[in-house]
């Protein structure tokens, strides 16, 4: 097991996935205990199942950007109140690193691939928007384990 992700054509070396799991596990119980809506899942099967390798780079890029710009950014105050900042920082900074290394192809012949990936991401985003913001942030943050599990397929 190396330290390398291969999201189709996108290769990212330099991230130890086990350390991301370790960071999330130390946050998981606190975060998931705050999620009262157990009947809804944002990262549903339709979002992550049967993603082709070529789609995966587009999808992970969109998902991680959303997590950085929306979920982590707005959930941060809850983390700051607890002593979970170091673990949160590990997750967030490794997501920043991964995004910086991803270059999803913009070639014309890849349009259908990026469109399919885009539709998957918008499915996730719509589900997020349908919830009250605090509930949505809590649920999305609690689903980082689903995201890491899916990322593990490309590790």
């Amino acid at each position: 097991q190396g330290h390398e992700f291969r999201f189709g054509p996108c290769r990212v070396e330099g991230v130890a996935l086990p350390s991301l799991w370790e960071a999330f596990r130390s946050l998981k119980d606190t975060v998931q205990a705050q999620d009262n809506i157990t009947s809804i899942r944002l990262l549903r099967r339709e979002v992550l199942q049967n993603v082709s390798d070529t789609e995966s780079c587009h999808l992970i890029h969109d998902l991680l950007k959303f997590y950085l710009n929306t979920v982590f950014k707005n959930y941060h105050h809850k983390i700051a109140e607890s002593n979970m900042l170091p673990s949160f920082s590990t997750l967030a900074n490794n997501f920043v690193f991964i995004v910086s290394k991803l270059q999803p192809s913009q070639k014309n012949e890849m349009l259908s691939v990026s469109d399919r990936a885009r539709r998957r991401f918008l499915m996730f985003k719509r589900a997020f928007k349908q919830l009250e913001i605090e509930a949505a942030l809590t649920k999305a943050f609690g689903e980082v384990d689903i995201l890491l599990t899916w990322m593990g397929r490309f590790y």
């Binding site: 950085l68 710009n69 982590f72 950014k73 941060h76 700051a80 900042l85 170091p86 920082s89 967030a92 900074n93 997501f95 920043v96 690193f97």
Partner: peptide, 18 residues
Amino acid sequence: YQGEYESLYTSHIWIPSK
């Protein structure tokens, strides 16, 4: 310390060294 995430998104936040 603060990583790139903190300096980009929450620049007022610094984390005590372990």
